[in-house]
Amino acid sequence: MEQFGIMENGYKDAMRQGRPKRVYGALLAIFVLFGVFYNKGFKAPENSTPLLIFIAVFAVVIIIAFYLLDKRLRELFESFTLTLEDQLITREQHDTATVSILRNEVTEITKDQHGAFTIKGVSKENIIKIPAQIENSEKLEQLLHIIKPIIVKSNWIFTVRELGFLAILLTAIALVEYSVNKIFIGIGAAILAIGLTYMIIHAQQDRNLDYRTKRGMWLILIAAIPAFRMIYDKLF
Rank of each mutant, 00 (worst) to 15 (best):
G41T: 02
R103H: 06
V60H: 06
D112H: 01
P50Q: 03
V106P: 00
N39K: 12
A65Q: 10
E75I: 13
D95I: 12
N47P: 02
D95H: 06
L28C: 10
E75L: 13
T110I: 04
T90H: 04
L28V: 09
F66W: 09
A65W: 11
V99W: 03
I101Q: 01
L102H: 15
K21R: 15
I101W: 00
V106I: 07
F42I: 05
T96D: 04
E85P: 00
T83P: 01
N39W: 13
A56E: 01
Q17R: 15
F42T: 00
V60P: 14
F80A: 02
F66C: 10
Q93Y: 02
L88G: 04
L102D: 10
V32A: 08
T110E: 01
K40F: 15
E46F: 06
V60Q: 02
G41N: 00
Q17M: 15
K43C: 11
I63Y: 05
F54H: 10
E75K: 13
D95N: 13
F54M: 11
F117S: 02
R22W: 14
D95R: 12
I101N: 03
L76I: 07
I64A: 10
R103V: 08
F34Y: 14
H94W: 13
N47G: 03
V36Q: 03
I62F: 14
S48E: 14
V23L: 11
V57S: 07
V57E: 10
K40R: 15
D86S: 08
E105W: 04
Q87P: 06
A59R: 02
A26H: 11
Q87G: 09
L27M: 03
N39R: 12
H114C: 06
F66L: 15
Q17K: 15
D70V: 02
E78A: 01
D112F: 02
T107R: 03
A59E: 08
D112T: 02
E46Y: 11
D112P: 00
L84N: 00
E108V: 11
E108T: 12
T107M: 05
T98F: 07
Q93R: 09
A44W: 13
E92S: 11
F54Q: 05
K40N: 14
A56Q: 05
F66S: 10
T49F: 14
E85A: 08
I30Y: 12
V106G: 01
S48A: 14
I53G: 07
F34R: 05
V61P: 05
F58I: 04
G18M: 08
D86P: 02
L82R: 00
G41Y: 03
K21G: 09
I64K: 02
F54Y: 12
M15Q: 13
T81G: 07
H114G: 07
L88V: 08
S100M: 02
H94C: 11
V61G: 07
L73S: 10
R22H: 14
A29L: 10
E92D: 09
E105R: 06
P20R: 03
R74T: 07
F58N: 07
F54I: 10
D112V: 03
L27N: 10
E85L: 09
V57I: 14
M15L: 15
F77G: 04
V57D: 12
I89M: 05
I109V: 02
F117C: 01
L27I: 04
S79T: 00
N47V: 06
R103Q: 05
T49P: 08
A44N: 11
D86M: 00
G25C: 01
F42N: 03
A97C: 06
L27G: 12
L69P: 08
